[in-house]
Each structure stands twice: as C-alpha cells, then as structure tokens.
Amino acid sequence: MRADYIAPVGERRTVALGDGSMVELNTDTAMAVDLQAGRRSVRLFRGKAFFQVTHDPQRPLW
C-alpha cells in the first residue's frame, strides 16, 4: 500500500491538501492523493475520512 497520509490506530489526523482542501482522517485510516492540473483524486485504502473540498470546477475531485 502506498499511502500519502496515515492516521495510526488510536490517533486522528487533519491534513491540508495542496489545493486548499482539508481532510480529517479517523483512526486507522490510510489514503493516497493525486493532484493534477485537470483533476484531483483520492484513494482511501482503509478507514474513514471527512473532506472539506475547495471548489474548483476546472479540477473535479474523484
């Protein structure tokens, strides 16, 4: 698994992404983020995450 962000068991973590979006990772969560010119994508490998996405119609979030 190639996660960019991890919240270990028993911890929570808040992450600021490069596009201004914020992600709150719940305990035991792992995710990867890919920000490109025409799109933004997030892959949640395990756990739970709450997203506050910065609006950008030129780069939808997948």
Rank of each mutant, 00 (worst) to 15 (best):
19 D>F: 08
35 L>E: 01
3 A>L: 02
55 H>N: 12
32 A>L: 02
60 P>A: 01
38 G>C: 06
2 R>G: 11
9 V>S: 08
57 P>Y: 07
43 R>F: 12
37 A>M: 12
40 R>M: 09
54 T>K: 13
32 A>V: 00
3 A>I: 01
56 D>A: 13
11 E>L: 10
37 A>W: 08
50 F>P: 00
44 L>V: 11
6 I>F: 10
56 D>P: 05
57 P>D: 11
54 T>Y: 07
50 F>G: 08
4 D>L: 00
47 G>C: 06
27 T>K: 09
61 L>H: 01
8 P>F: 06
14 T>F: 05
30 A>Q: 13
21 S>N: 09
56 D>G: 06
33 V>M: 01
15 V>R: 03
62 W>T: 15
6 I>C: 06
17 L>K: 06
48 K>M: 14
61 L>C: 04
58 Q>W: 08
39 R>M: 13
52 Q>K: 14
21 S>F: 04
16 A>C: 04
27 T>R: 10
43 R>Y: 10
39 R>I: 11
53 V>W: 02
49 A>T: 05
57 P>I: 11
47 G>I: 11
8 P>K: 10
9 V>L: 13
50 F>Y: 11
40 R>K: 10
50 F>T: 15
2 R>D: 10
13 R>V: 06
61 L>V: 14
43 R>V: 14
62 W>K: 13
60 P>G: 01
43 R>M: 11
46 R>E: 12
38 G>E: 14
48 K>C: 09
35 L>N: 01
10 G>N: 07
34 D>M: 01
34 D>W: 00
